[in-house]
Nucleic acid binder design. Structure first.
Lengths: 248, 248
DNA sequence: CATCATTTGTGAGAAATATCACAAATGGGG
DNA sequence: CCCCATTTGTGATATTTCTCACAAATGATG
């Protein structure tokens, strides 16, 4: 009795895994039951199914529960971040290797890589890697290690070791704080070794942040501003000497 | 003129990035325009926005274009795969370290890890890693390297090197072909070194496949069946000597 | 095989969304 | 400052989805 229902739920989940979206009507037809039954199945399994105006989707796709902590901060300064990345993207050249730091800021950079450029992108976070997989012409190198949910990134000796085998033309770094005197800082200490090694190995490094980060100081220091060719914000490339706290 | 529209589109994309789902009505209120305008914005940017019965979602969430090639095969034998994983999950013990192979089969295993078990999971593919991030009690170790879209996995020397530093209690391997005589084979050669090293290091290894794989032979050989404690299918654990081609 | 709890189907009215045509507003160019 | 192309708003109508109550069917149990 409950057997029939359980089987149907599994079949529905399977169909959804394949299709990503399923119309209520189609689902009913597919499983040979009424729309009402499908409605109830969905309502009974909120962890499995999401439902949007007649369409069934995987719960994961619309789940407000953040898969990583990142999502909570995703909205703040999104426009500024995107604009900063537009400026940063001008330093990407075809057939070169770039490094993309973790965090939400540089996620936008991935979508701004020109379609026809074939590049190699080095990353160490899931959100950046996910975005990169959608780009047909990108070769992706992931630095592995132990996962840190706070930044959706990985860290470990083997990841650092991998960097020894790579030639990085341009590195795009991000920071949670940019202090004119102290330099670039971030929140999580595990990111520091990766950032530092990348900066030391890459031909050119750029710090990409929205202006809200300027003037802030966070616990983990990773580089003086002189380590970067430029600091790139939504206003463009700032000469290092001109940096100042945001007006607001 | 087109300026206003472009600004609004970006704002909408930003709001969506934060919320994952946005009701048409809310979007209209948020941006201070009519629902009709939002409708048109969405229709004009099919690459950016998806739309399902009154709700705006990121296009990526409902895009039929597979992020990885995996998705195309995702539906086939899904129920059998899930059932095989149910049997496999009985070998997971709390506070231990498990290895999860790439492919769609073992993705299901992640969801079957008991909620209250705190485990360490070693993986080398994006789809498995993604699922693991949704589990609060899992420590995740990712083997890095160069990305292979065909299996959404990474391979490289540093990933192999990482394995030397790990103690794996139970390894769950998958295969595209299981031949009683020849053993376990897969399609992609780059997976072979990882699988072999894992088998050699783990205390126990299990081969988890749906029955459709039995009798098949694929290009890349990675282990004889004697390397595994058992072959686990939707029918349960098969004694190695009893393996035979599926009846259908 | 009769009983009971659960699951499933149906239909009608209520609510929401979709579509369209036309009017109003906006911004750039002469 | 006027004109024109584009963008935006409004309201009516058509379509779809939602909710609910009740009837029918199902499967387990004694």
């Amino acid at each position: 009795m409950a057997n029939r229902k359980a089987t149907r739920i599994i079949a529905l989940a399977d169909a959804l895994a394949a299709r990503r979206v399923l119309h209520l009507k189609d689902a009913a037809a597919l499983l040979g039951v009424s729309e009402m039954t499908i409605r109830r199945d969905i309502a009974d399994n909120p962890g499995l199914f999401g439902y949007l105006g007649g369409h069934i989707v995987p719960a994961a796709d619309i789940d407000a529960d953040a898969p990583y902590d990142l999502a909570r901060e995703a909205d703040s300064h999104a426009t500024a971040k995107r604009e900063a990345c537009v400026h940063a993207a001008r330093h990407i050249r075809p057939d070169e290797t770039i490094f993309i730091d973790c965090g939400t800021t540089l996620e936008y950079l991935v979508d701004l890589i020109p379609e026809n450029y074939s590049i190699t992108a080095v990353c160490y976070s899931l959100n950046v890697a996910d975005r990169l997989t959608r780009r047909p012409n990108a070769r992706i190198v992931m630095l592995g290690g132990v996962y840190h949910p706070s930044s959706a990134s990985f860290s470990g000796n083997s990841g650092l070791e991998t960097l020894n085998h790579l030639g990085i033309n341009v590195a795009f770094l991000s920071a949670a704080g940019v202090d004119p005197a102290r330099g670039a800082t971030c929140v999580h200490f595990h990111e520091v070794p990766v950032k530092q090694k990348v900066i030391s190995l890459a031909r050119e490094s750029y710090l990409v942040v929205d202006k809200s980060k300027i003037g802030k100081l966070k616990p983990a220091f990773f580089a003086p501003l002189t380590a970067f060719r430029a600091v790139i914000t939504e206003g463009g490339e700032a000469a290092l000497s001109v940096l100042e706290a945001p007006s607001g």
